[in-house]
Design a protein around this nucleic acid. Structure first.
Lengths: 359, 359
DNA sequence: TTGAAAGCGCTAACAT
DNA sequence: ATGTTAGCGCTTTCAA
């Protein structure tokens, strides 16, 4: 009935369970004749070592984890485009990067998105099954992280350095947005810029706003204290925020700088509905570099994050720390790049790549 | 030194370990006063339940798995485009579909690609840590699968029905290719079609070739016994195979039907180098529907697989079987769609979507 | 080279 | 509502 265990194999092969275990963990310490016999019996019985028992006994799992928020834009999920490969979001790219890197280091990857509640938090579930894990910002209550990170390596991705003993990874949000806003102001001669911010609990979004403020200051423009409007990072939020903005008295802005691409896409839609042309009437820029940004018309100018690299770097940090548990916390800042497309008023880029990019 | 356990919490909270366990598993069976005390102590101590111990004791993990081959096209990984989000392949899409579906069912997802060797095979590693898992074709030796599937739910994705008691998922390869080839013959009036096949161990590739054969037969053309040439599914293979084909005496084919998109991309490159124009001189079609296909010029006509849905269906089958272990094996055939773009000679599709698709 | 035995941290009856 | 007590299947000294 139950799955065969070391005991079954041992008995059948006329050895002790210790020997069975050795055959799998240290094959060389077992006489080859004995080893072959054990292996043969194992196949015959359909024996598969229990990862749980192993992990319990050896205190390690060979698995790395990733926790991320339940990002998925509901709008995206629900419409007919749900099967469109372009709909790839931030967390998916990080997953890809981590998977590749983990594989190279011989680890498997456990991925889990937040949803749950109760005393059984998401982290707890993941934390109990991995040797170390990465967490995207705003996924796990700081308090939980604080506790768990005392017991196993954790790297915080794109979050605040809330907990000082964590390894930490972030992208150049402020500098990237500074440069983008400066491009709008200097290269396109725009003056009335509006910032569509994220929620205040997103360190990324806030950092981007700071970059925006710096650019305004540097250009001698009025420096806003707060984003002109805010949203929760989805397209729907972007649309709503843009509508609110346009309803306000006074002339519409010459440019909308959005805290992320999804909201920028929403802004594009709202502006179109209002009969405003992008970029002629209003320029729009995003932040992230999601694939969809280059498919829409006008194509979206944005600040591109190295999402895959984030995932890879996370694994590197994790592996490093597993090898040297007491190393002092490391923090890495990854650079971003400016992606200028149509929505800021730049000329349409050369027909994307074509074959030249392939060969 | 070691992480705190139920014993530590129990002692500190003046309860038994059973109560501590209950607080996490059946909170309602514990007096709220007691529960709060336990929880408080747990936080204080930094207690995190061990997933391994839990899994061992309860015989379930709350994790579903996915094993896939080490697909990554080395060429793609190595060049500068490695950070390009468009480079998403088959396995990644399936991963996405599974993750979403698993999340809905309350499971986490463990993903692992084959690489390893030794008695410790990839499957064994995954199998020991999950409640059930999916395997892409050609990832795991049939023999191993046979053994493991006796112990836990396994669904085979896009593979042959090698093992008859497995749940099984596949796409309409033959029908899809039949329809595509028929389109080339009937709508574009082409007669000399060449088939660029995959390796003989790929049931998908073979099924596609069968569909191609049927189309030839139905149109009254000569029916080839074998693909005109073969490759191992990468762009490089596609280039090489195409070069070989062109070097053969006789006039070049009017169309190349490729077993997958990556090879079709390679074919595009090889043809361009030879100075042949696509689709004027030679039409090219692929199979899969990878995102890159729509970015290249000419854009690639292909048969699109519902990759995300494959992942979702896999989870559904797994969950179903976990609920009803003795249900008889189920097999599902998912439909494919024709994606007509430039490389077959069809007119360039309307400017992709634009905002209309978003609202 | 192999065996014996003591855990690893938790769950799940069964008691109380 | 809470405690007692067996395991769950493996790794790992320590002996032999």
């Amino acid at each position: 009935m139950g799955a065969p265990t070391v005991y079954d194999v041992a008995k059948r092969a006329q050895v002790s369970i210790a020997t069975v275990s050795r055959v799998y963990r240290n094959p060389d310490t077992v006489r080859s004749q004995t080893r072959d016999r054990v292996l043969a019996v194992a196949r015959e019985l359909g024996y598969v070592p229990s990862g749980n028992a192993r992990g319990l006994a050896s205190r390690s799992t060979g698995v790395l984890g990733l926790c991320f928020p339940d990002y998925a834009d509901p709008e995206v999920e629900d419409d007919g485009a749900a099967d469109d490969p372009e709909q790839m979001l931030y967390a998916d790219e990080i997953t890809r990067g981590m998977e590749r890197a983990a594989r190279r280091h011989g680890y498997a990857l456990l991925i889990a998105a937040s949803l749950a509640g109760g005393p059984e938090s998401l982290v707890a579930k993941v934390a109990g099954r991995v040797d170390g894990f990465a967490v995207l910002a705003r996924t796990v209550p700081t308090e939980d992280l604080e506790i768990i990170s005392r017991r196993l390596p954790v790297v915080m991705i794109a979050g605040p350095r809330e907990i000082d003993h964590l390894d930490h990874l972030e992208v150049a949000n402020a500098d990237g947005e500074y440069e983008m806003a400066t491009h709008l102001i200097r290269d396109h001669g725009l003056r009335r810029l509006a910032f569509l911010g994220g929620t205040t609990d997103s360190p990324d979004a806030e950092a981007r706003f700071h970059g925006f403020q710096r650019a305004c200051a540097a250009a001698g423009l009025a420096v806003p204290d707060e984003p002109d409007t805010r949203g929760n990072f989805t397209q729907a939020d972007g649309r709503a925020a843009t509508d609110r903005l346009l309803q306000r008295v006074g002339q519409p802005p010459e440019a909308m700088v959005c805290a992320n691409d999804q909201m920028a896409l929403g802004a594009l839609q709202a502006l179109e509905r209002q009969g405003l042309r992008v970029p002629q009437d209003v320029a729009v820029v995003g932040f992230d570099g999601i694939p969809l940004g280059r498919m829409v018309r006008p194509s979206l100018t944005t600040v591109t994050q190295p999402m895959r690299k984030l995932g890879e770097a996370a694994v590197d940090l994790l592996v490093e720390r597993l090898g040297e548990p007491n190393r002092s916390p490391r923090s890495m800042l990854l650079p971003v790049t400016q992606t200028r497309r149509e929505s800021c008023g730049c000329p349409s880029p050369a027909p994307e790549a074509g074959l030249s990019r392939l060969g």
